[in-house]
Design a protein around this nucleic acid. Sequence first.
DNA 1: ATTGTGGCCTGCCCGC
DNA 2: TGCGGGCAGGCCACAA
Length: 271
Amino acid sequence: MPELPEVEAYRRLAESASLGRLVTAVEAPDAWFLKGGIVARDVEGALVGCRLVAARRRGKLLLLDTDHGHTLGLRFGMSGRLVVDGTAGVDELLYTSRRDDPVWDRFTLRLGASGVLRINDPRRLGGVSLDPDEDALGPDALGATPAQLRAALAGSAAPLKARLLNQARLAGVGNLMADEVLWRAGLAPVRPAGSLTAAELRRLHLQLRRTVDLLLERGGSHLGDLTPHRVPGGTCPRDGTPLRRATVGGRTTWWCPEHQTGAAEVRGQRP
DNA sequence: ATTGTGGCCTGCCCGC
DNA sequence: TGCGGGCAGGCCACAA
């Protein structure tokens, strides 16, 4: 499930392997994969004959800039892989096939005479857009300042985790990383987002930064310390308490009821 | 406005 | 051995 770490790996791959190259053709066999009301001809018209000049990322959105001013936006859903000239951006993804079946190539750029940049996405949950509205996304989770994190959470009655997953508020955190960050910060996902004390906000910011760095280093959002324990019967790797499972913010959520503190404890009560 | 829900899509895994 | 039902989750439309 590509979250920030995977998409950053894709960005680095695109940057190292595709910049400066000429787009010679576009293959978009799946109309569903084109978002924002565009058709294959639109993408061709915007990109063929251009060179790729920058590979940027905002949250889970990969942005490829061209020298003619257009920007290609690539989304990977949970099962999309970026492959450039046969090199995949990440080794494996959780919750999807490890195979690289050509029929799952949903979008392809031909680069130069023989190069290929393509999205291989078994479940078609990703998509491609032209000149996407980057400011529809909040600040990137990588490098978000304490003030930006505070602003993303302030005044909200929504569950803390739901707010962390809201890409318009903070871009890049997905389900697994949210559980990992909250576990590390010792905060219950069901806490109202706006209920955090200043000390808790500092703790959350610190652990967000550390977790993003760690998962970037390890190379995947599924490589956190909590992830292996997000299974029936799983226990907290910190204190051994049986983990709790519930749907929070519409997603399967696992947390430790012992050390991830809830609203009751904030008010000085023990559950 | 904010918050919650369901559906998209399809491969994979479990239990029968 | 094959089959069917859950399940996974990023994102979006829609409802309250």
